[in-house]
Design a protein around this nucleic acid. Structure first.
Lengths: 117, 117
DNA sequence: GCTATAGATTGACAATTATCACTTCAATCG
DNA sequence: CGATTGAAGTGATAATTGTCAATCTATAGC
């Protein structure tokens, strides 16, 4: 686990030689790193990336019964991946009768995207 | 594992009612999803995010001996995280005498970033 | 050569993860 | 009501991950 980043005092050096220049003070603080890591972890599986891709490209809500046949995976496994995405705040779902419709939460990727640019 | 995405033939529906509209054909293909998942996985840990952040913000190469004291982690653990980043193609290192200097590979984040925007 | 040092590697361990078969739950249809 | 169906939940299992202590490697200085 990381902590609030600090430039700790330098260790002993080989006599007369500095290891290197002091690094820049990183302005990515702990909480932000935690949140972004959560998002990145949700995106760290090709299946989930493709799920998010489908949901993002489709303007609207997509039924799980459309998503499952896109993969050679069992329905519970796809359901599991959707749950991971839901718990990371990237998507949400809505029940309509027997069916569940998933959709992306628009701003969920923003913090990570902004950092990446 | 995912496969090349296809709109599989529809399953049986409840009589007279369609489950939902056909989804858009996802244009994120398997190879791209794999590569982006690799990058996302490398970024899925707060320590590695902060490491990349420091390296990106610092115009130049940063010595490991500067990176280790930024975290409350053992040297081997930081070394492990750097290795993960290296294997994902996000950073590389250069040895100079006793010291190792790490730096980001500029275009490594591009594919993921482009997809996110 | 000998010692000290920076960094990587190894081995071990607990925790997490992706997957499936099976089951459960909720809603619809007859 | 009873049967069916879409989706989520429950074990279980194999694989992966984050961490550290201990070790190893290569370099520098004496």
């Amino acid at each position: 686990m990381s902590v609030e980043l600090e430039l700790a005092p330098k260790q002993k050096r080989a006599a007369g030689e500095r290891c290197c220049e002091p690094v820049v003070y990183p302005d990515l603080e702990h909480g932000q790193a935690e949140r972004m890591a959560t998002v990145a972890k949700a995106l760290s599986d090709p299946v989930r990336l493709q799920l998010v891709d489908v949901l993002r490209k489709h303007a609207g809500k997509v039924c799980v019964c459309e998503l499952v046949p896109l993969f050679e995976l069992s329905q519970p496994t796809v359901s599991h991946h959707l749950k991971v995405l839901r718990e990371a705040g990237l998507v949400d779902s809505e029940r309509r009768g027997l069916w569940a419709y998933y959709y992306v939460i628009p701003d969920a990727l923003e913090e990570l995207t902004t950092w990446l640019i």
